[in-house]
């Protein structure tokens, strides 16, 4: 409340007061109200017409829209009585037009955005592809964060404005816009996570790590003539099944690089299939360090994405994860 009270534009008007005042005398009255603002910590039974909850005001002070100031009617009357007559039933008038709607928080922001987009419609924009990638809140995120039932159509319209505003040239983007957009960004920005590139060390090795089921593999890939050593054994020694051998070197096979690289790998955990497919991923990643241009080919070969499936846990009341117990008559 303290932070919000410092803002001059958030001064409020009282219905009773506004009746008694003419337009020219409005400013001094607002200043009066400013001075009359009480410290929120001192106030117990206060009346506040903010559309925000008090907690969010205290925390997120960057854009809190307060409908009207807190008023201590009695003291106000006492002060003002000599000069003005103040009605006993005077109540603050909400400045937000959405105060009586079901979704004031969203509506307020929507209005702010509309206003901003009208105001800055002439600023130069950059193509959407060149903008900084930002993960915007999804509809459910938005509903969760505002605690309001936002309509999907409204959300779509609002997000269109958000994206339009985001396209404004970053050097000319006003602070107000930046501030208004902050509320629509997700809390965790996945696009900030940039994978660290795999280095190629002085021996020409690239280390790739791959996992599958409960196996994990580390593969050192160097330029060579197609030799593979896994845990000190050859491919044929380590994997009895031909299928496993093929899947282990699938990344090299799919890109026709099997005679161009040597692989030295360590695998642990899991069974043979898991180890073979962990190796696939590890070799693919290490290969990407040598030749980044192979990424589309490797993705088509299906060796870039980690398969996240694990053993499904057993549930109580079941024999296995899903298997039901045998039906027994009594």
């Amino acid at each position: 409340m303290m932070a919000s009270s410092s803002r001059p534009r958030l001064t409020s008007a009282l219905r009773g007061v506004s009746r008694t005042l003419n337009g020219g005398q409005r400013q001094p009255l607002e200043q009066h109200f400013q001075s009359l603002q009480l410290n929120s910590s001192a106030v117990r039974g206060r009346r506040c017409l903010s559309t925000e909850s008090t907690e969010s005001n205290a925390n997120g002070d960057r854009l809190s829209i307060t409908a009207a100031k807190e008023l201590e009617i009695k003291s106000l009357i006492k002060k003002l009585t000599p000069k003005y007559r103040l009605a006993q039933h005077a109540r603050p008038v909400p400045i937000s037009p959405s105060y009586f709607s079901r979704t004031p928080a969203f509506n307020d922001r929507y209005l702010v955005l509309e206003k901003l987009s009208r105001a800055y419609v002439n600023l130069p924009v950059i193509p959407a592809a060149d903008t900084e990638r930002i993960a915007w809140k999804t509809l459910s995120d938005l509903r969760q964060s505002f605690g309001e039932p936002v309509k999907a159509t409204d959300y779509v319209k609002c997000l269109a404005i958000v994206k339009r505003l985001h396209q404004i040239h970053p050097e000319l983007k006003p602070d107000a816009v930046k501030e208004a957009l902050l509320d629509f960004q997700r809390d965790v920005q996945a696009f900030l996570n940039v994978a660290t590139p795999i280095p190629i060390d002085k021996f020409g090795r690239a280390l790739g790590v791959g996992k599958r089921k409960s196996s994990s593999a580390r593969a050192f890939v160097v330029e060579g003539e197609g030799q593979v050593l896994i845990n000190g054994k050859t491919l044929a020694d380590y994997f009895g099944r031909v299928h496993d051998r093929e899947s282990a070197v699938w990344a090299l096979h799919a890109t026709d690089r099997i005679d161009k690289y040597n692989v030295w790998a360590r695998v642990e955990g899991g069974g043979t299939t898991g180890q073979a497919e962990a190796l696939t991923l590890a070799i693919a990643k290490a290969l990407l360090a040598h030749e980044p241009a192979l990424k589309p080919a490797l993705r088509r070969a299906g060796v870039v994405t980690r398969d996240p499936r694990r053993v499904e846990r057993k549930k109580h009341g079941r024999v296995k994860a899903r298997k039901g117990p045998t039906w027994v008559k009594r």
Partner: peptide
């Protein structure tokens, strides 16, 4: 060709003949 030979040679654990047969003829 070079590629096919290397592939089978690698799959057979650096050219173990029986494994080459397995990977090529018996699978």
């Amino acid at each position: 060709d070079e590629r096919a030979v290397t592939e089978k040679w690698t799959l057979a654990g650096s050219g173990v003949l029986g494994e080459m047969e397995r990977a090529t003829l018996l699978t």
